[in-house]
Simulated assay, not measured.
Amino acid sequence: MERTITFDGDPNIGVFARVLGDIAIIPPEAPEDFKAALRAALGVTLVETTVQGSSIIGSLVAGNSRGLVVSGLATEEEIDILSQHREVLLLTESMNAAGNVIMANDSFAAVHPDMPSDLREAIGEFLGVETIALVLGGVKTVGMAGVATNKGVIVHPRATDRQIEQLEKIAQVPVGTGSVNMGSGLVCTGLLVNEQGYIAGNATSGFELGRIEDVFGFLE
């Protein structure tokens, strides 16, 4: 099976979509080959919607199997669509690009270090997880610098041993470093993954794909 693709020619596929277990949230204009690749590689149900009228779903949505955390600027129609698949928590404060500032699985959520503690606690309670404020490799937008599933976590290649140790204590799954699209440490921008499989931006090298497969346990 082909493990790389673009979104209408753009290898930054994680900017336009967010995979959360058995669903993939994608914009309505997603190309048919992109939809087919997600179904084949990940076995997901496709949820087609914009968020706050935008197609950059990956930056605006985070969550796990229990719920979705979404920009508070989402419209009622968008919230209605998302609510058919998960409970929804809206971020109504200034730090509302949920996909940029939150990385989560069913055990933990890592958040932007400048996020107010009361908001971090609210997110943790909503998702039913332990939370941690974290920087990864000098990047505060942890939702872009890491990708988590219930089988593994891949993070920015410049993440320090200390940062990885912090994650390992709460993640309950293997944590490793990697990159996408020929060296980008913002791994979420070029990777869509769940427990069933993965797909990466088409500029991702064979070595980078190998690291993804290793971290998430897909090596045969």
Rank of each mutant, 00 (worst) to 15 (best):
E77I: 02
G63H: 13
S54I: 00
D118Y: 15
S71K: 04
I56N: 12
N105M: 12
L89E: 12
N105Y: 11
P28A: 02
T45A: 09
V88E: 10
V47L: 02
A62E: 11
D118I: 10
T50V: 04
E78G: 11
E76Q: 14
E29Q: 13
A74L: 06
G99C: 09
I79A: 03
E78P: 10
I79H: 05
N100F: 01
E76V: 05
I81F: 09
F108K: 03
F108A: 12
E93F: 01
G53D: 05
G67P: 11
A110S: 10
L91S: 06
V69E: 07
E76G: 15
G72F: 09
T45W: 00
T45G: 03
R86D: 05
M95H: 05
R39E: 15
S83I: 09
T49V: 10
D33A: 02
P116I: 11
V69L: 11
L46H: 07
S55G: 13
A36I: 05
P116T: 12
S107A: 13
A74S: 15
S71H: 03
A104E: 08
A110R: 06
N64V: 08
A109E: 07
I81L: 08
E87H: 12
P113Q: 11
L38A: 00
L42Y: 03
H112K: 06
L60M: 15
F108S: 05
S54P: 00
R39C: 01
D106Q: 09
V70H: 11
D114E: 14
N96V: 01
R66H: 15
E77W: 03
A36L: 12
L119C: 05
I57L: 06
S59P: 00
N105D: 13
A30C: 02
R120I: 09
E76H: 12
M95W: 02
R120W: 00
F34W: 01
A36R: 15
F34S: 00
L46V: 02
D33Q: 08
A109W: 04
R66Q: 13
T49I: 09
L68Y: 14
D80L: 08
D106G: 07
P116M: 10
M103A: 14
A74N: 08
L46E: 03
V44C: 10
M115N: 05
A74Y: 02
G43Y: 03
L89P: 00
F108P: 04
D118R: 14
R39T: 14
V111G: 06
H85A: 02
E48Y: 02
G53R: 10
E77F: 03
I56A: 14
V111W: 02
P31E: 02
S55M: 13
H112E: 09
M115F: 09
L82T: 00
S107V: 02
S65I: 05
T75C: 06
E87I: 00
G53Y: 05
M115A: 08
V70F: 11
V111S: 06
T92V: 14
M103R: 07
H112L: 13
I57D: 01
M115K: 11
D114Y: 14
P28M: 04
S65W: 04
P113G: 08
E76M: 06
M115D: 07
A74D: 08
